[in-house]
Simulated scan of single mutants.
Amino acid sequence: MHRADSVRCVGGIVFDADGRLLLVRRAHDPHRGRWSLPGGRVRPGETDAEALVRELREETGLHVAPVTLRGTVPLGRYLISDYTCTVSGGRLCAGDDADDIGWVNSAQFSALATRDALTPDLAETLRTWDALPR
């Protein structure tokens, strides 16, 4: 259930050819300094797909194509719809909403989770969706 004043957002679940997951370290609140999926707010008049393509290009430098809605999660006043995406081009670089970016494998992801360096519930959510890195 979501609040009437929820802010619609999208996130991208992106894997490379080795099964590593793309994460960004948030440069701004909420959760500044923690690692999360790339994404952001859906602008008025935008579809989720349009917002996802725009946000991932701005935040990661990559051109993506949304494939499948994996699920939707509330995070405070934000309602985030996370989609599996494929990369169609671009060059990986952290945008202004991220102070770092990278592909993480299973061991690296687990280490981030152990250090409480991920956004709240990210590890459990991805585990539930069978979307953890290899």
Rank of each mutant, 00 (worst) to 15 (best):
His2Val: 10
Arg3Lys: 08
Arg3Val: 00
Arg3Asp: 03
Arg3Tyr: 00
Ala4Leu: 05
Asp5Met: 00
Ser6His: 03
Cys9Ser: 10
Val10Pro: 01
Gly11Ile: 04
Gly12Asp: 07
Ile13Trp: 06
Val14Pro: 01
Ala17Leu: 07
Asp18Pro: 00
Gly19Thr: 08
Gly19Lys: 03
Leu21Lys: 04
Leu21Thr: 01
Arg25Asn: 02
His28Ser: 10
His28Thr: 07
Asp29Pro: 00
His31Glu: 14
His31Ile: 04
Arg34Gln: 13
Trp35Thr: 07
Trp35Leu: 05
Ser36Ala: 15
Ser36Gln: 07
Ser36Thr: 15
Leu37Ala: 05
Leu37Lys: 10
Arg43Phe: 06
Gly45Thr: 06
Gly45Ala: 11
Gly45Trp: 06
Thr47Asn: 08
Asp48Leu: 09
Ala49Thr: 12
Ala49Cys: 14
Leu52Asp: 09
Arg54Met: 05
Leu56Gln: 11
Arg57Asp: 11
Arg57Met: 12
Glu58Met: 08
Ala65Trp: 00
Pro66Thr: 14
Pro66Trp: 13
Val67Trp: 03
Val67Asp: 14
Val67Gly: 01
Thr68Ser: 09
Thr68Phe: 02
Thr68Ala: 12
Leu69Cys: 14
Arg70Thr: 09
Arg70Trp: 06
Gly71Asn: 04
Thr72Glu: 15
Thr72Phe: 08
Val73Thr: 14
Leu75Ala: 15
Gly76Asp: 03
Arg77Asn: 12
Ser81Tyr: 12
Thr86Pro: 02
Val87Ser: 03
Ser88Gly: 13
Gly90Trp: 12
Gly90Glu: 10
Cys93Arg: 15
Cys93Gly: 13
Gly95Glu: 07
Gly95His: 08
Asp97His: 13
Asp99Trp: 02
Ile101Arg: 04
Ile101Ser: 06
Ile101Gln: 04
Trp103Glu: 11
Val104Asn: 03
Asn105Leu: 05
Gln108Trp: 00
Ala111Met: 06
Thr114Gln: 11
Arg115His: 13
Asp116Cys: 12
Asp121Cys: 13
Leu122Ser: 03
Leu122Arg: 14
Ala123Ser: 12
Ala123Asn: 07
Ala123Ile: 01
Glu124Asp: 14
Glu124Gln: 13
Thr125Tyr: 03
Thr125Met: 03
Leu126Arg: 12
Thr128Trp: 00
Thr128Tyr: 02
Asp130Gln: 13
Pro133Gly: 06
Pro133His: 11
Arg134Cys: 05
